[in-house]
């Protein structure tokens, strides 16, 4: 059997139809979890056979902010923190579109925190996929709104003294209709949650805890990205539908994963449309 005939039977990597191949390999570091999240998201699109003419992928600034540029879809890279505000404009202007925001913890919860809570409050239909690596990676590993107390970063060189957000708790309290947390290790469960969230109408939120082997995990002597993933395997527990307020996220003890919220609430663009129709009839 010749080499050529053997190779000709090989299929393409199944997710590549959703990816801008001319942009690969991507910029993410070895063992960074962002790539795994993109892989899970693309796998979910594939298993849902999602109509990509109805999706807009949007991200903010930072490592995860580069995510939108890798998808063969209508996609937009906003300024820092504004992905959700942009997504709101997209959804309201054309309700047939499903905005998906893929961004980082600093982008979504520090500079973009206000947009997050208000889009969740309004229940604007979008999926927000947050890669949480506990620091600002793109700028060199500064502390952010999710950095744990006492963690070392370049702007908390003597240990962080700020209290971090618990993202799933913020999302649930703000009114998100679907809230989940996984780690990059839970790639298949993450894919399932993304599938579920994409089929829901409303503000859905998934946090993915991810290694940052180049910065955060190195500063805090967590070892390689692989060792961080092994640690996730050791300390993560799945508690579906437990109280997100109690969903612990502590690298020393336990990371509570699972789907915490799955509820129904009228969606904003639907309400807007209904409101408009009523007024147009002259009611």
């Amino acid at each position: 059997m010749t080499e050529t005939s053997r190779i000709s039977t090989i299929e393409e990597h199944p997710i590549l139809e959703y990816i801008r191949r001319d942009r690969l390999p991507h910029i993410f570091c070895s063992a960074c979890g962002i790539g795994t999240v993109l892989q899970s998201f693309a796998t979910a699109l594939r298993s849902l056979n999602y109509d990509m003419d109805n999706m807009v992928i949007i991200s903010g600034i930072g490592c995860t902010g580069r995510a939108s540029g890798y998808f063969a879809a209508d996609s937009y890279h906003t300024t820092h923190g504004r992905a959700i505000a942009f997504a709101t404009g997209v959804k309201v202007a054309n309700p047939k579109l499903k905005p998906v925001v893929i961004s980082g913890d600093g982008d979504l919860f520090a500079i973009g925190g206000n947009h997050f809570i208000h889009a969740a409050r309004r229940n604007v239909d979008m999926l927000v996929l947050c890669v949480n690596n506990f620091n600002y990676g793109m700028t060199g590993g500064q502390m952010g709104p999710t950095t744990p107390v006492s963690a070392i970063t370049v702007t908390s060189p003597d240990g962080n003294i700020e209290h971090p957000f618990n993202l799933v708790s913020v999302a649930a309290a703000s009114g998100a209709v679907f809230v989940a947390r996984w780690t990059a290790l839970h790639a298949r469960r993450l894919t399932k949650s993304i599938e579920k969230a994409l089929q829901k109408k409303g503000f859905t939120f998934i946090e993915v805890v991810s290694p940052c082997p180049t910065l955060y995990d190195r500063y805090n002597r967590h070892g390689t990205g692989l060792e961080v993933m092994k640690k996730y395997r050791e300390i993560s527990v799945i508690r579906n539908f437990s109280d997100p307020m109690q969903a612990e996220i502590d690298y020393r003890t336990r990371i509570v994963c699972g789907e915490f919220v799955d509820s129904e609430k009228p969606e904003f663009s639907d309400l807007l449309e209904e409101h408009g129709k009523k007024l147009q009839k002259g009611d």
């Binding site: 504004r82 942009f86 709101t88 404009g89 309201v92 202007a93 579109l97 208000h118 807007l272």
Partner: peptide, 20 residues
């Protein structure tokens, strides 16, 4: 839509513009 601040307002306008 009344947004949460002016940054969001202007950004939503750009999103709507790109949406046609």
């Amino acid at each position: 839509i009344q947004m949460e601040d002016e940054i969001a307002s202007c950004t939503a306008v750009v999103g709507a513009s790109y949406s046609g």
